[in-house]
């Protein structure tokens, strides 16, 4: 019985290897799913992905996602692509829990599923193109704030996307833990949602500064919350007294970094992230990338390390007045 199982396993492996070999280099379709379509951050990732597809020449790229960031619509897109028979689906899950069943179903149908930008449940994808983990991102924002403040002490507040945003909630958890362990003198006094509306972020930040006159810092932890909060500090004439940091594309923040409202912006090279994702998708379809690999040749990005099932982009960037002009995305 056991022999039979072994033989079967070997046969399946051989068959799949043969299938893979036959496919290698063939035209494939890769679907790239962002958390929310229409956001500058994801648009710049898509530009990088487009570049990789063009370089490879044998990848048809689909870039689509929910314009309102709805997890249900994202899951519906995954199901649609599975039915259409795309070869690889690269998911940036706006809600890992909601998307997991659809991703698992896609894998069961033979579609290669990877995550990028944010990870999903390990059972719902084969690889994760990791620019940084949720913990790393949360800690990087707290560290940037501490460094900008000079003396890491005083009241800080978070302006988040929505109260149900899965990624932001993961970062907040990491930020809370890191604040408690590394900077006990920094006190988190409020977490307020802006409902992904820049105007609301602006008003919430205004209110926070008045309600807590001794506030020293605001984290804007979405690409909408960050510029809104920075604008509020700038208009209140408190640039330099209340520091703002967070995640956003450099183009959206250049003005605030130059006038000193924002000292550092935490992000990674988004074009590179999109580029690497498509490269990984291609390699996976070709059977070149297999579990156990320790490095990955990512075209013009050179060799990227692989840790377990994560391909690391490894370039968490901090944009400051000194370097922000070198980036255009």
């Amino acid at each position: 019985m056991r022999h039979l199982a072994v033989i079967l396993a070997v046969l399946t492996l051989a068959a799949s290897a043969a299938a893979v070999a036959a496919e290698a280099g063939a035209q494939i379709t890769v679907a790239l799913l962002p958390k929310k379509k229409g956001v500058a951050y994801f648009t710049s990732c898509a530009a990088g992905a487009e570049q990789a597809a063009k370089e490879l020449g044998n990848v048809t790229l689909i870039y689509d996602g929910p314009t309102d960031g709805s997890p249900e619509k994202a899951a519906a897109l995954i199901e649609k692509w599975t039915l259409k028979g795309v070869d690889v689906i690269a998911v940036s899950p706006n809600d890992p829990e909601v998307l997991a069943p659809a991703m698992q179903a896609a894998m069961a149908k033979g579609v290669k599923v990877i995550t990028w930008d944010a990870d999903g449940a390990a059972s719902s994808r084969s690889f994760f193109v990791n620019q940084a983990t949720g913990t790393q991102i949360g800690e990087a924002m707290v560290d940037a704030m501490a460094k900008d403040l000079g003396t890491p002490a005083g009241k800080v507040a978070i302006v988040t996307a929505t109260l149900t945003a899965a990624n932001q909630n993961a970062w907040i958890a990491a930020m809370k833990a890191h604040l408690a362990s590394a900077y006990p003198k920094m006190e988190l006094v409020a977490i307020k949602p802006c409902n992904e509306d820049q105007k609301v972020a602006f008003q919430v930040a205004q209110d926070l500064m008045k309600a807590y006159p001794d506030l020293v810092g605001i984290f804007g932890i979405s690409s909408v919350a960050f510029p809104g909060a920075a604008e509020a500090v700038k208009q209140a004439g408190r640039s330099g007294q209340v520091l703002v940091t967070g995640l956003a594309t450099p183009n959206a923040m250049k003005g605030y970094v130059k006038d000193g409202t924002v000292k550092s912006v935490v992000l990674w090279n988004t074009r590179d992230l999109g580029y690497l994702t498509v490269r990984v998708a291609r390699a996976l379809a070709d059977g070149v990338l297999i579990p156990g690999a320790t490095s990955f040749a990512a075209g013009s990005l050179g060799s990227k390390p692989v840790a377990g099932d994560a391909i690391l982009l490894n370039n968490l960037l901090v944009f400051t007045k000194a370097n922000i002009d070198q980036f255009d995305f």
Partner: peptide, 10 residues
């Protein structure tokens, strides 16, 4: 124009 940049969803 109260904001320096506007994004989809305004």
């Amino acid at each position: 124009p109260q904001l320096e940049v506007i994004e989809a969803g305004f």
